[in-house]
Nucleic acid binder design. Structure first.
Lengths: 147, 147
DNA sequence: TGACATTAGTTAGCGATGTGAACTATCGTG
DNA sequence: CACGATAGTTCACATCGCTAACTAATGTCA
């Protein structure tokens, strides 16, 4: 694999990347079959990874405002996927964590519920897959960083 | 640059990619400063690239249903960025194309309106930028293909 | 101690974006 | 000319994000 030429047109890359990510997100949203909405799945994943976590910290990780988190968490509680625990020392704070059902859903999603996308990825060659894998990490760094 | 190890866990990559793309899209939507919405910008870009095009074909390219296209195009017409031309032979069909204002906006967006994302990209090393560039193309292939 | 700022989270209401179902208008075909 | 296919629209609905304003609890400091 020859090393790629350097990218100097940052603005061009930025606008291209914006469009590609936007379109991909739209398609993936439509094809999502996890049983819960993309927002809920993303929040669930954050809660899964970061153990017991406060609503405010979920907002930080998800890069979303607090009222949005309130609604998403309410939905996850309704579905029985997370549970809240009041903080005994600071009664303003509510900790959330996955229920067994939440953990089961996450396992399910990771292992086999992404048939649409996985099916399309199957057609790619290994180099492209590796590129996507690295790109996912880079995207996370770029978009999740604190300002 | 050493060649990457092969990716075999397609389901894992798929679910990771879904989350990364979703979060990136959410952040980019919030930071968008093009003056028009991401949907409108994406459609405008498609119309720009594919010359005079019908509404149905815009829907194909954008991977969106026809009612969605109707509304997006109406917005672009309101903003004076595109214009419709009735097909003289088939009066069901409406062709759309960019107005001078639409072309000017596209030039503007490509060159300098993506400060947020470009600013964050500036911190990346050339290899990461090249990865993102290739990933954008791959994403387009994966998500825009006909089923 | 008591006034006041800060912090965590919620409620209420808005706007943007996408959808499916049903509709109009037009076209093509036997 | 009847009837099915096609292009696009309208309508009602759901999701998802936001700001503003609120409640409740905590911290600070004169």
């Amino acid at each position: 694999m020859p090393s790629a030429p350097p990218v100097t047109d940052l603005a061009g890359l930025a606008s291209q990347l914006r469009l590609s990510v936007f379109r991909a997100s739209r398609t993936l949203r439509r094809e999502s079959q996890a049983g819960i909405s993309p927002s809920m799945l993303a929040a669930l994943s954050t809660i899964d990874r970061h153990g017991p976590i406060t609503a405010g910290d979920v907002a930080q990780h998800e890069q979303v405002r607090k009222p949005t988190v309130t609604r998403i968490l309410a939905g996850l509680v309704d579905e029985g996927l997370i549970e809240r625990t009041a903080d005994p020392l600071d009664r303003r704070v509510a900790w959330v964590q996955l229920t067994p059902a939440g953990r089961a859903l996450m396992r399910n999603v990771r292992r086999r519920s992404d048939r649409f996308l996985a099916g399309r990825l199957r057609a790619l060659d290994p180099a492209d897959l590796a590129t996507l894998e690295r790109a996912a990490e880079i995207l996370d760094r770029v978009t999740e960083q604190e300002e």
